[in-house]
Computed example of a mutant assay.
Amino acid sequence: MPYRSILQREFDHQLREHVGDPLMYAPSQKLSVISEGKVLFRWSCGEDFEFFDLASLTKILFSAPLWVRLLQHSSLDVKDEARVYLPWWKNGDGVTVEQLLIHSSGLTWWKPFFKKIKEGSLQKRREQLIELLKKEVPENPGQVCMYSDLSLFYLGLIAEEVFQKSLMDLWLETKAQMGYESLHFQKANQLSHKKSSYAPTGFSEWREKELQGEVHDDNAWSFGGVAPHAGLFGGLEDLENYLLSMRKLSLGDPACALKPDFAQRFFQRKTPKSLGDFGYLFMKPTKGASSAGRFFDDSSFGHTGFTGTSIWYSPKKDLGVILLTNRVQLGVDLPHFKVYRPLVHDLVGQIVLGSEWGER
């Protein structure tokens, strides 16, 4: 039996030993494990779908490469105040670009802007968003860390200002640069592929319908389906290629026209552990409470998505795990997925690295 099949079968056996039926946690799941520059094994269960709502993985699949490119090719300094590029944000005194990148801007984590933004062209929706963002008042920037979707809204607008291009045009450039094939936004909330090819993501109270192929995040939907914080859909292969590119960059090799010295700034911890666990746009493992479990040490970087997605990579252990699920199909408030996701990573670490528990 091929080694890949042995690992896949062992993972499936161990997972079912620990949790019983994995489908209690999400009705569709795909897993890919990467080590030493190759896919070690894949695993899946439940109904098979080509595309998943990647949710906040958009932050590292789109916004992070975009911002690496921005820092490579512009005179922007992360110590600049955001108001240098967004002079209309009168309430943003003292907030730097870097604070937006590491979630220490003092902005709240989320607001239901979708209740105030009316339908229209992407440009009209953008103008409405700016009017809402003008009113945001950060609290104690630089002194606290709070994961914030709002930070990404400002970063997206800064990128548009620096490049003098729309967010959609910047996405198309990023897609070409990164070599993405399956990743896509649903521009103007219109399906790009057959509805049946998308993993469903449950009922939207705001839109009063079951979602399948329509972005789960209501703010991203209200922006017209294209956003810097959420909205991408895609499949496993593109995420594998992305992780392999990030691996190359972490080792000091160029990838996708991105320079390692710039990209590595995004992977490194930028916040004191007493404040939070962030690099530039990437998450870092939170000791004792990481979604990546116990094997992913402090060299690791990655991100999670609200719909039940995640990507994590440890340069120290040369181990990467991609998990795609539609856990929100079962409900958004079910707490048991917070236990399931780190367990999946722990079992992968145990099988691949050969020790019972990882060292942090």
Score class of each variant (00 low, 15 high):
3 Y>R: 15
4 R>I: 04
6 I>N: 06
7 L>H: 13
15 L>P: 08
15 L>E: 10
17 E>C: 13
17 E>Y: 14
18 H>E: 15
19 V>F: 10
20 G>N: 13
21 D>T: 14
27 P>V: 08
29 Q>K: 05
32 S>M: 13
32 S>R: 05
34 I>W: 03
35 S>R: 14
39 V>Y: 05
40 L>W: 12
41 F>K: 07
43 W>E: 06
43 W>R: 09
43 W>K: 04
44 S>A: 11
45 C>K: 12
46 G>H: 06
49 F>A: 01
49 F>Q: 02
50 E>H: 11
52 F>M: 05
52 F>A: 01
55 A>I: 00
56 S>T: 11
56 S>V: 05
62 F>R: 02
62 F>Q: 00
64 A>G: 06
65 P>L: 07
67 W>S: 03
71 L>N: 02
71 L>V: 00
72 Q>L: 08
72 Q>G: 09
76 L>N: 05
78 V>T: 11
80 D>N: 08
82 A>Q: 03
83 R>K: 13
87 P>D: 10
92 G>K: 02
101 L>H: 05
103 H>L: 06
107 L>H: 04
108 T>C: 07
109 W>G: 11
111 K>P: 01
113 F>S: 06
114 F>K: 03
126 R>V: 04
129 L>Q: 02
135 K>S: 12
144 V>I: 15
146 M>T: 09
146 M>I: 11
147 Y>N: 11
151 S>T: 10
159 A>Q: 05
159 A>D: 04
159 A>I: 05
162 V>C: 09
164 Q>H: 15
166 S>Q: 06
167 L>N: 01
171 W>S: 00
173 E>C: 04
179 G>Y: 02
181 E>N: 04
181 E>W: 02
185 F>T: 00
185 F>L: 00
186 Q>G: 01
188 A>H: 02
196 S>R: 12
200 P>A: 12
203 F>Q: 07
211 L>Q: 03
212 Q>Y: 04
214 E>I: 11
214 E>T: 09
225 G>E: 01
230 A>M: 03
233 F>D: 00
237 E>R: 11
238 D>R: 00
239 L>Y: 00
243 L>V: 14
244 L>Q: 08
247 R>W: 08
249 L>S: 14
252 G>R: 12
253 D>F: 14
253 D>T: 11
254 P>H: 14
256 C>F: 03
261 D>P: 03
262 F>Y: 15
265 R>E: 12
266 F>T: 05
266 F>S: 06
276 G>R: 05
286 T>A: 15
287 K>L: 15
290 S>P: 09
300 S>R: 07
305 G>L: 01
306 F>N: 07
310 S>L: 07
317 K>S: 11
338 K>C: 11
338 K>R: 15
346 D>Y: 11
347 L>H: 09
351 I>V: 14
353 L>F: 07
354 G>P: 12
356 E>M: 14
358 G>T: 09
